[in-house]
């Protein structure tokens, strides 16, 4: 169980022969992910870590009929790669690549919406359903199968919190990163909806950060829908100054909008427990489940 991916997921890797693509394909295979094909234009007919490589997604699909793709190609070409996957019927696309131009991402998301496809990222560590499938670059050993769904805007901070949960015997159903770029596919609300109907998920951890209003919208959704499962939130960036970009393109406070205070208050009002420090997440969860 878990959301989006499970043990039956069959994935292709676009940009499989690059340094990152090749390295993480090996780790994903070791985790047990079914990687059925890789794409690198010009390297068709060869293979890497036992995975056959094709020049185009079309050819890969004829041979392997995958339902998911993970993308490692450089930013200038990543939107193109994602469109190639969509055009070939792939409905789940994880974009690891960071710093995709906004204009390209906006165009891609409009087409993904029409195709009713799920895009995770760009600039995401990926998604993992522990013990079943990992489409991402996260370190596998910090996760453990269990009942907490995790959704986050950051990578290493998610690892920090997940590792803390695992230490405290709080396993995860699925853990996914929305991505640090300004325009991403899935948002908090989409993910909360999926976790709501997943039987394995008993509680949700939501890790947000400064910038934008996705957290405020999620808080409103939780309150309006009387969300059926307990939610614990952590917001990074309380100490961030206005107008400065804190690493992620999206992490920027402009004027009073996008501040950590605004997000924390929105969650508190919606009845969500907000952790003061990353390690407090586990304590709050233990009290709630």
């Amino acid at each position: 169980m878990g959301i989006i991916i499970d043990k039956n997921t069959r994935a292709i890797v676009q940009g499989i022969t690059g340094t990152q693509g090749s390295f993480h394909t090996k780790l994903m295979l070791e985790y047990g992910t079914k990687i059925v094909a890789g794409i690198t234009p010009g390297k068709g007919g060869t293979e890497i870590h036992g995975v056959p490589i094709y020049d185009t997604v079309e050819e890969a699909q004829q041979k392997s009929s995958a339902d998911a793709s993970i993308i490692f190609v450089p930013a200038a070409f990543a939107a193109d790669a994602a469109l190639e996957a969509l055009e070939n019927g792939i409905k789940k696309v994880v974009i690891i690549t960071e710093h995709i131009p906004i204009k390209d991402a906006v165009g891609l998301m409009a087409i993904a919406k029409q195709a009713k496809a799920t895009i995770v990222g760009p600039n995401t560590p990926g998604i993992v359903t522990p013990d079943e499938c990992k489409l991402g670059i996260m370190p596998a050993h910090i996760f453990k199968s269990g009942g907490v769904g995790m959704v986050s805007r950051s990578g290493t901070l998610t690892y920090e919190i997940a590792a803390g949960m695992t230490r405290n015997s709080l396993g995860q159903s699925t853990c996914l990163g929305l991505g640090g770029d300004p325009i991403t596919g899935l948002n908090f609300i989409d993910t909360l909806k999926m976790f709501a109907s997943d039987h394995q998920t008993k509680a949700v951890v939501l890790i947000g950060e400064i910038g934008g209003n996705l957290e405020e919208l999620a808080a409103k959704y939780i309150a309006d829908q009387k969300y059926p499962k307990p939610v614990v939130a952590f917001i990074a960036g309380r100490s961030a100054p206005s107008g400065k970009r804190m690493g992620h393109a999206g992490a920027i406070v402009t004027g009073k909008a996008g501040t950590a205070e605004s997000k924390i208050e929105a969650f508190r009002k919606a009845g969500v427990s907000v952790a003061g420090k990353p390690n407090d997440v586990s304590d709050l969860l233990t009290k709630l489940i």
Binding site: Y159, E160, E209, S239, A240, G247, H248, A260
Partner: peptide
Amino acid sequence: NGAGLVMATLDTLQYYGGKPANF
């Protein structure tokens, strides 16, 4: 390493009364 972790690090320093010089 990682934008989110660094942000949370600055927050934790501030939580304990410290003043970060940078991100």
